[in-house]
């Protein structure tokens, strides 16, 4: 199967049309770089690197897509979803470098996405219902063709919304430290003291998607629905399908945000219902640093650690 994929890539690259398209894309990239030079945005190297990386990734992904779409084994479908959750948690932890965010994100994204996907995948067990995700018409099995793209939508939405929620909750806790302390001083529990903050973070995370649903068919024409109609599915069926997808996305995002927020905000308080001042200071310090500065600092620390190790080895020798 892998060798067939490589042959497919090779055959595609032998076609003249591909190279003409690449050349045209290169001209557009040159235009972009010129604009960047003109406006002094200093984005030139980032543009070249992103497009180069993106092109290679998408070519490889496109090529293995046919392999993934052909998967019919349930454990393999779950394994791929699981790996996608792992990568989503990693991406979130890189974007929001707060303590334990990888683990928290992984627990939240995996549990919510897997639960929603399981419900959807096995919805066909209802008598007389063919299921939300269509089964292979010949073998009546779930296939990667539908499970993986829908799973990727659910997981990426959950990742994005929980990221927005966590960023909001973190900055609101720092901003409202005085009010939270006032509530604690009145005898309130930390969880209740930050209820309003949690509520606002869910709103911030979910509102854009809710607005998107409200503007469906007028401002937004979803790609999935458009693709289905082009593929010959009746418009009403495609529309209902799209609505179900949006509900899945919102449910997974909401559940992920709740789990992430509960686990993340727990770190702000001690068991004695006090602010954990050290954690709060740590987060506030991180807040003032850009991701770039943070990565530089981590790199510096890592190099120092290696140097120290080397020295200690030399001394022992």
């Amino acid at each position: 199967m892998v060798s067939q994929t490589l042959i497919d890539i090779w055959n595609s690259l032998r076609q003249a049309n591909i190279w003409i398209r690449i050349a045209l894309a290169f001209i557009l990239l040159l235009v972009l770089i010129s604009l960047s030079f003109w406006q002094k945005t200093k984005l030139e190297s980032k543009l070249i690197w992103s497009f180069l990386r993106g092109t290679i990734q998408i070519v490889l992904f496109g090529s293995i897509l046919s392999l993934i779409f052909g998967i019919r084994k349930l454990w393999m479908l779950y394994l791929i979803l699981f790996l996608m959750c792992l990568f989503a948690a990693f991406t979130n932890a890189r974007s929001y470098p707060y303590p334990r965010l990888f683990l928290i994100g992984f627990i939240a994204i995996t549990s919510s996405s897997i639960v929603i996907m399981t419900l959807v995948m096995f919805s066909y067990i209802f008598p007389g219902f063919e299921g939300i995700i269509p089964l292979d018409p010949d073998t009546l099995e779930l296939t990667g063709e539908y499970v993986i793209p829908i799973g990727s939508m659910v997981i990426s939405f959950a990742m994005r919304v929980s990221g927005i929620a966590i960023e909001r909750v973190k900055s609101d806790i720092i901003k409202s430290k005085g009010n939270i302390e006032a509530a604690l001083a009145l005898g309130d529990s930390p969880y209740r003291a930050i209820q309003n903050i949690l509520r606002e973070s869910y709103r911030a995370g979910l509102t854009p998607t809710i607005n998107r649903v409200a503007s469906l068919g007028i401002v937004t024409i979803p790609g999935l629905m458009a693709g289905m109609i082009i593929g010959g599915v009746p418009p009403v069926e495609a529309a209902i399908y799209q609505i179900v997808i949006f509900l899945m996305l919102l449910s997974a995002s909401f559940i992920t945000s709740i789990i992430t927020n509960i686990l993340f905000t727990k770190q702000f308080f001690t068991k004695k219902q006090q602010f954990d001042i050290e954690f709060l200071n740590k987060i506030a310090k991180l807040d003032n640093q850009t991701t770039g500065a943070l990565l530089k600092e981590r790199w510096k620390k890592w190099r120092e650690k290696i140097k120290r190790k080397k020295k200690s080895v030399e001394t022992t020798d």
Partner: peptide, 13 residues
């Protein structure tokens, strides 16, 4: 218990 203690001891910041 922190919460019960804080009911008896009010605080103005």
């Amino acid at each position: 218990k922190s919460q019960e203690l804080r009911k008896e001891i009010g605080m103005v910041l």
